[in-house]
Design a protein around this nucleic acid. Structure first.
Lengths: 79, 79, 79, 79
DNA sequence: TGCATAGGACA
DNA sequence: TGTCCTATGCA
């Protein structure tokens, strides 16, 4: 019977993952919809993607810079 | 002034996309968490991924078969 | 005979790739050596890696911003 | 002043690393070029990668066998 | 952490 | 449709 329980547990894990995967796919579809909507308003999708990519890179750089600053402060015994 | 409005509209599109991208990333993080939780219960992650992939393929195959069946039915004037 | 020639050509491609892979590995080894040398001088390798990563990200962001500016200019019919 | 010198030294380390990273990237680009050239001659890139990987594994195996042989020889007091 | 592959976007 | 590139999976 332990096997049955284990099988159930595994099945639950798999189903949770599959549900999350579906939601993730839904998000991707929504994103595509927004791009298409913008396109129908006359915006250039390729440029918009470049903007989004750039902003993401800048955010990452900012976050990493903050983390680095913390590292320095810790190394110098500052707050 | 049309330009200002256009800039606002563009900004809104970009922000919608960024919000959706964040949610999508959240989903990916959740999925990873579930795999890790299963792993901590003694399940093999690689095998679980294989199972998920296989079930997805089977679902695709089933969906395609259903679509084909619909096509046949339509061609034959059936419900 | 065409097959022999083809086999030779393929072999030459493979050998060129293998030579380049070795040189690439040599570069990776050199990089590790520099980190170790810096470490022996009292520098923290992890922090140094963070600095290198940050500078690379900032450079990418700058390059992408330049490219985006060009895209805008082209879209607006400017130089 | 020691700090200034240390900062200079650190900067030099970072710049050496960045130069080496660029060269390494150049190697990777060259490798990609060779694969693309082979592809344009009708070769299958994926298969070529498999060949390169296989030969590398075989080389490792050979090197290990050689090392083992040396160990035996040393243990037996042979040249 | 770096590499290889698979999936999605663009021409 | 085919290529390119990013994003994910694997060692």
């Amino acid at each position: 019977m332990a096997d049955l329980i284990a099988a159930d547990q595994l099945r639950l894990f798999i189903e949770r993952i599959e549900r999350l995967e579906e939601e993730k796919k839904g998000m991707a579809d929504d994103i595509r919809d927004v791009y298409n909507e913008a396109k129908s308003q006359g915006y250039d999708v390729k440029t918009m993607r470049a903007v989004v990519r750039l902003r993401k890179m800048e955010k990452h750089a900012r976050d990493e810079a903050d983390a680095l600053l913390d590292t320095y402060k810790a190394a110098l015994g500052l707050s």
